[in-house]
Amino acid sequence: MKFTKSTLAVTAAFAAIGLSTQAQAGATLDAVVNKGFVQCGVSDGLPGFSYTDASGQYRGIDVDVCRAVAAAVFGDANKVRFSPLTAKERFTALQSGEVDILSRNTTWTSSRDAGMGLNFAGVNYYDGQGFLVSKRLGVKSARELDGAAVCTQSGTTTELNLSDYFRANGMKYTPVNFDKSDETVKALEAGRCDVLTSDQSQLYAQRIKLAKPDDYMVLPEVISKEPLGPVVRQGDDEWFNIVRWTLFAMINAEELGVTSKNVEQEAKDSKKPDVRRLLGADGEYGKDLKLPKDWAVQIVKQVGNYGEAFERNVGMESELKIARGQNALWNKGGLQYAPPVR
């Protein structure tokens, strides 16, 4: 009797510190199917990437990755629940099993990939770190920032890149770190710091949050490589494959000219072998992924292809108006490239 009691206590204790979920292959998909939705960790409010619109709906390019996974697994892009996480909370939330996917403008680095029990499923946005300054300072280049006070969000790779850049150029700076990105924006506006540094995409997003966006500018220098992508727990290859190929399906769909408008037509009538395989008309590629046959059709129909998601959230159709640049397809001068479905 005593033994059972103590075993129970131990199990309870471990459930409490979040180590009871087993990282076995297949466990995540089973759990997701059982509970009926995907739990997705997103940013705590970053226009274009993940934010809630006026009607309380989550929107953004990171949000769309999670919606696409839900569309692939359930055939319903709305079977997602979102957990807004700060930069500091995000990895613990994923490691402990609180979220199934972390899609929160997270930079792919070796230490996160290898040392923290995580796997990056791909890159949904190629970014780089930049600087946002007030035009009143009269600064034209980051090289003129010697002695400046710089606001950053703590617990991010930006803190390290910032220090590397200033050291490499023999310049000094005063770091002012806040937990939330909104606080860094407020601090810049109040004049607590001269410069705000973050990934360039975020700078554009933060700039439109300022009271007078036109008084501020993003400096031309990009001081780092920031490949951002969705992250899953290490050790569950099946779930990893699903997330990775959901992203690839969106990119492939754009490359093959499949859009949310023509996807059902294409699925029925297309003669192109690549399109037929992607949309499940030929072969059993969904089955390999333990997904329904029409997984890619559902993704593109409900969420759109990569290009559509990009334009809608951060591109020319959005407030941010970020050019495709590095995020164009590989055959259009960018870096977005997906292996084929076959």
Binding site: A23, M116, G117, D164, F166, T174, P175, Q234
Partner: peptide
């Protein structure tokens, strides 16, 4: 805890204290 951390490929131990921090402090 040790077993679970090892199983999940999460680094453990106190060796990190000797690594370079690389960020600025106010």
């Amino acid at each position: 805890t040790q077993t679970n951390l090892a199983q999940r490929g999460i680094t453990s131990g106190f060796a990190f204290l000797n690594n370079t921090a690389g960020f600025g402090i106010l």
